[in-house]
């Protein structure tokens, strides 16, 4: 059992990558990797698009709207996918909650 509080990402959440967490291309496997101290995650193309959009200014709701227009997909589905992904990042301490 962990005493670490579970962060809840909502539509109004504004997040960014914390200091020390960076997106880098792995030249060996030619895919993008999110690097953090003592941890790394290989990301697929959509995960990379999401991470690159985390500017610490736009909310999840705004990002969902932008992606909905860009990918011609339902905003609700996109918001759900983004929140699930960001929750995974947060659980691994790879996300900073701005508000």
């Amino acid at each position: 059992m962990s005493d670490q509080p579970q962060v809840v990402i909502t539509d109004s959440s504004v997040v960014k990558l914390p200091r020390g967490v960076r997106l880098r291309r792995d030249p060996v496997r030619n895919h993008m990797v999110l690097l953090a101290p003592e941890r790394a995650m290989a990301l697929d193309d959509i995960a990379v698009v999401i991470v690159q959009a985390l500017d610490g200014v736009k909310s999840v709701d705004v990002l969902s709207q932008e992606f909905s227009e860009k990918f011609h997909a339902p905003k609700d589905q996109i918001a759900q996918d983004i929140k699930a992904f960001l929750t995974e990042l947060s659980n691994r301490r790879m996300l900073e909650i701005v508000q």
């Binding site: 990797v33 790394a40 990301l43 959509i46 995960a47 990918f71 997909a73 996918d81 995974e88």
Partner: peptide, 13 residues
Amino acid sequence: MAWHAPKFIEVSC
């Protein structure tokens, strides 16, 4: 590129 749920693999040592 079509929208899909983002996927990732945690790369362990």
